[in-house]
Amino acid sequence: MQRIKNSLLKGVTIAMVVAIAVMSVSSIATASYYPSNGRAYGIARNSGTGLDGNFFRLQIKAMDSKWSSSSSANARFILHTTWLAFAGTAWIECGTMHGAIQEPGASAPSFWNGSYTAQGSSSTYNEYKISGPSAAVNIYHTYQISRTAGPDSAGQYSWGVYVDYDLRRTFKNTDHYGRLPDVGLESNESTATSAQWNEHSLQRIVNWSWNNWARSNNSLVYTNGASVSYVNSTTGSSIYTSK
């Protein structure tokens, strides 16, 4: 009887050791795969400062945020966009999205698939559809964020968001210049998907001249299953992004 007890004890001990070992490996893999905010990013960032604006062009391909009106899925989004940063935490973004857009009186976000713009800081946030530009696969669009006027009597500058060279919305802030433009993909949903998109003609606007991003001024960031890579080995002004 004692030998049976010993055998059982050995079996349980070995099982626990195996379980702990495998779980440890699992947790290491999870920790390295998901960063703190859990978002998927596949973006190129340019180190430019003193910018009059930022510009890029894309061809729409398939993407799916896996949004549905059920409570477990109505906050999901995926987008291909550009962000232009300003002093402090302020930024402006514009691009094309699939998924949630908030409505102030509703208990849940609604759905939008199309161009959009957003602007934010620690004390303000604006999010608007850009109605008009088609969201159909294979259509090309250009997106641009650039200063349009200023300073006014209150010391504020006006920044315009352009899609296909048409002004869509302006935002005001106290910044004469933008900095650190990003272009690429973002999603808050692990099951969201994006075919390979080509964001290209990545250009920064300095002294009202549109200049291609140089590879030496860029960095690539990819997290949580999103990917980004340069299209060829010589320039930094064209990327592939997917998820």
């Binding site: 409505e103 004390s123 608007y128 559809k129």
Partner: peptide, 12 residues
């Protein structure tokens, strides 16, 4: 047709 929203508040 819903266009979007503007918000003022405090985000940490």
């Amino acid at each position: 047709y819903y266009h979007g929203f503007s918000l003022t508040g405090q985000c940490e």
